[in-house]
């Protein structure tokens, strides 16, 4: 795939503004990756390469940063990205049961995407909502104080809205 990626002029303007806000170019990597994510829809190898070249930092460094965080939308992620927090508070309050339930309902384990491309499941580190454990993040929304029923309901809702969206 020899698609040449490039920021649109307005995104480029935002990028240049970002650079003025950080002491070094490298420090602006996280928000620049956010820009790339919204511009290109996901962060895959070509997108990382583009950002690395744009910012003149080693591609390997960008790769390390992108894989360190769970918050970037990686290439091949399904339409609905279910990220279950599995750090301490959530783990103690039953995040493992939440993951197991989702696996039962969708037939995928963390790190996988359903064949239909609709759902991706990940176990992620702390999402900063320990008071409402266990919780998960579906795309940009938090779903908190989860019970197994809540999980079932969420999946049903998402399936419905996917149908609604495609009709």
């Amino acid at each position: 795939m020899a698609v040449t990626l490039s920021f649109s002029p307005s995104t480029m303007k935002q990028y240049e503004w970002l650079l003025t806000r950080y002491p070094t170019r490298r420090a602006a990597l996280l928000p620049t990756l956010r820009l790339a994510e919204s511009e290109f829809g996901e962060i895959g190898v070509p997108e990382m390469r583009y950002v690395a070249d744009l910012m003149e930092i080693p591609p390997a460094f960008v790769f390390g940063v992108v894989t360190f965080y769970t918050h970037y939308r990686r290439a091949g992620t399904g339409k609905y990205h279910i990220q279950v927090c599995s750090t301490l508070s959530c783990a103690l309050r039953g995040s493992e049961d939440v993951v197991t339930r989702i696996t039962e309902r969708l037939g995928i384990v963390p790190g996988e995407t359903t064949d239909c491309g609709l759902f991706s499941l990940s176990k992620v580190e702390c999402l900063g909502s320990c008071d409402t454990a266990p919780m998960l993040q579906m795309n940009d929304d938090y779903h908190e104080d989860l019970s197994i029923d809540d999980v079932d309901q969420l999946i049903e809702q998402l399936r419905e809205s996917a149908k609604g969206g495609s009709n």
């Binding site: 190898v45 591609p59 390997a60 460094f61 960008v62 894989t67 965080y69």
Partner: peptide, 21 residues
Amino acid sequence: TSELCIVERGDRSVVDVFPGI
């Protein structure tokens, strides 16, 4: 030459190279 990086996080982190480099 900066070919190496640490990918992933916590107990999954490990040395890797950028895909294709």
